[in-house]
Design a protein around this nucleic acid. Structure first.
Lengths: 119, 119
DNA sequence: CGTCAACATAGACAGGCATCGAATCAGAGG
DNA sequence: CCTCTGATTCGATGCCTGTCTATGTTGACG
């Protein structure tokens, strides 16, 4: 089958969403969707993995480059999957290695959520 | 005792911290501290409570104004405590009511974490 | 004082989640 | 074809946490 760069995970949801948090109270549905992204960054290991990918030269990194975070390699894979399911990272296999990169629009959307409109 | 506006919770930690996530890989200690704040916003109920406080006129709200989020009153109190322990909210008792307000510096610090330096 | 309302705390329970070892899959190279 | 390395998936386990009911604390008001 033409299964080249198809994501092996079910849903790539958690698209950019919602106004700044101090503009209007979020609805239940908005909060549900937004919390997924914050929760994904709410783990120290995932935060280090995300930061490692985001700060890597070229904007992408293979798993072997960022696996040194103090947990087993399956656990690293598990956390990278979570970040991908939350829409924060995208992955692509090139030969032997799998490369992860940051989804830029989602990062900007999260930043906008925390940007206060009042001076 | 002189127990006026003293916070009844142990630690008010989770101060503003760390460079933007795409600048350098976070250390384990940095990630540990930063994850606390993201985890606090990683729950839909807490996100709605925080948004309700942040968007309230005057920048503060009493519990009775924001308690309509579909969970029991003790659960609301529990989540507000979590947000306070994470350093995102501050509370003050005035007469019968307790008012919560957003800790502005922390919000700005979180926004800076997600602000990419590259164009 | 006694009572009422607003919040907080305590304890219990269920579901979620981070972690690991073992097994499996996918390419590269002999 | 075999094997080695990189990475994901699987199943199990133990802790963390979100939720509730019940109770306690604090201040206002007769």
């Amino acid at each position: 089958m033409s299964k080249l760069t198809t994501p092996p995970v079910p849903a790539p949801d958690a698209v950019p969403c919602c106004p700044p948090l101090d503009e209007r109270p979020l609805t239940a549905a908005e909060a549900e969707r937004t919390a997924v992204m914050f929760k994904a960054l709410g783990d120290p290991v995932r935060l280090r993995l995300f930061s490692a990918v985001a700060s890597h030269p070229g904007g992408e990194a293979c798993v072997c480059d960022i696996s040194d975070v103090g947990v087993s390699q399956p656990t690293v894979s598990h956390h990278l999957r979570k970040l991908r399911e939350a829409g924060l990272l995208a992955s692509e296999r090139r030969g032997t290695w799998v490369y992860y990169r940051v989804e830029p629009s989602v990062l900007a959307a999260m930043g906008r959520l925390l940007t206060t409109s009042a001076p």
